[in-house]
Simulated scan of single mutants.
Amino acid sequence: MTTVTSPLAGRAIGLAAVPDPVFSGAMVGPGTAVDPVLEPCVAVAPVDGIVVSLHPHAFVVVDVEGHGVLTHLGIDTVQLNGEGFEVLINKGDTVRRGDAIVRWDPNVAVAAGKSPICPVVALEATAYALAAVSDGDTEVKTGDALFTWT
């Protein structure tokens, strides 16, 4: 079983509230989302593992059980071309839960008309494999449990 923790502080809102049909429809996978506190922050690893994909706006960490967890910092933030983001590690790095991955200012996304909501998705999982710990209008701190994956 893998516990997936919040990569940043904010409010856990559930994927259905994400203003993007790919995420809200769980097409990428089940999970939850965090509406972040609107201040500069550092997004951290939600699980122990290897960073297999790394972009300024999104990263995937795969744990020892092969569970890939996608953290997407904002919606349509790829269009910002890295503005407001600073990548702090390298693809292929081994990380521990809570290790800093990307420094981000969600206010840059908001100023550009983008949603700051951050989906945290269990890639290639089925909804029945997840148990929500914090889903639906729950304040979370960085590192608080979001869901478990069995």
Results as ranks from 00 to 15, higher is better:
residue 58 A to T: 02
residue 25 G to F: 08
residue 149 W to M: 13
residue 132 A to M: 15
residue 142 T to I: 11
residue 80 L to V: 05
residue 27 M to Q: 14
residue 111 A to Q: 11
residue 66 G to N: 13
residue 150 T to C: 12
residue 47 V to N: 02
residue 79 Q to F: 03
residue 83 E to V: 03
residue 92 G to Q: 10
residue 133 V to D: 05
residue 24 S to G: 09
residue 135 D to C: 11
residue 57 H to V: 06
residue 81 N to T: 08
residue 49 G to D: 07
residue 126 T to Y: 07
residue 117 I to D: 04
residue 33 A to W: 05
residue 123 L to M: 15
residue 125 A to G: 10
residue 90 N to S: 13
residue 115 S to V: 01
residue 26 A to T: 11
residue 104 W to G: 01
residue 9 A to I: 10
residue 120 V to S: 13
residue 75 I to H: 00
residue 126 T to G: 07
residue 100 A to M: 03
residue 74 G to C: 05
residue 115 S to I: 04
residue 58 A to M: 03
residue 19 P to M: 07
residue 107 N to F: 01
residue 129 A to F: 11
residue 4 V to C: 02
residue 34 V to L: 02
residue 113 G to N: 11
residue 90 N to L: 09
residue 119 P to F: 03
residue 38 L to N: 07
residue 77 T to C: 04
residue 104 W to E: 06
residue 123 L to V: 14
residue 133 V to G: 03
residue 46 P to K: 08
residue 116 P to W: 06
residue 93 D to Y: 04
residue 92 G to V: 07
residue 134 S to L: 06
residue 55 H to W: 05
residue 12 A to G: 07
residue 27 M to A: 13
residue 128 Y to M: 13
residue 13 I to W: 04
residue 55 H to M: 11
residue 129 A to S: 15
residue 1 M to P: 10
residue 1 M to G: 14
residue 60 V to L: 14
residue 29 G to T: 13
residue 130 L to R: 01
residue 55 H to Y: 15
residue 53 S to L: 15
residue 139 E to H: 11
residue 130 L to D: 09
residue 45 A to D: 02
residue 22 V to C: 05
residue 58 A to K: 00
residue 37 V to D: 13
residue 7 P to V: 06
residue 130 L to W: 02
residue 6 S to P: 01
residue 99 D to G: 07
residue 78 V to T: 10
residue 55 H to D: 09
residue 87 V to Y: 02
residue 39 E to C: 12
residue 101 I to G: 05
residue 18 V to L: 09
residue 60 V to P: 06
residue 144 D to T: 04
residue 142 T to E: 08
residue 118 C to M: 11
residue 106 P to N: 10
residue 90 N to I: 03
residue 91 K to E: 15
residue 101 I to D: 07
residue 126 T to F: 11
residue 38 L to F: 12
residue 74 G to V: 00
residue 6 S to Q: 06
residue 20 D to E: 07
residue 12 A to T: 06
residue 119 P to W: 00
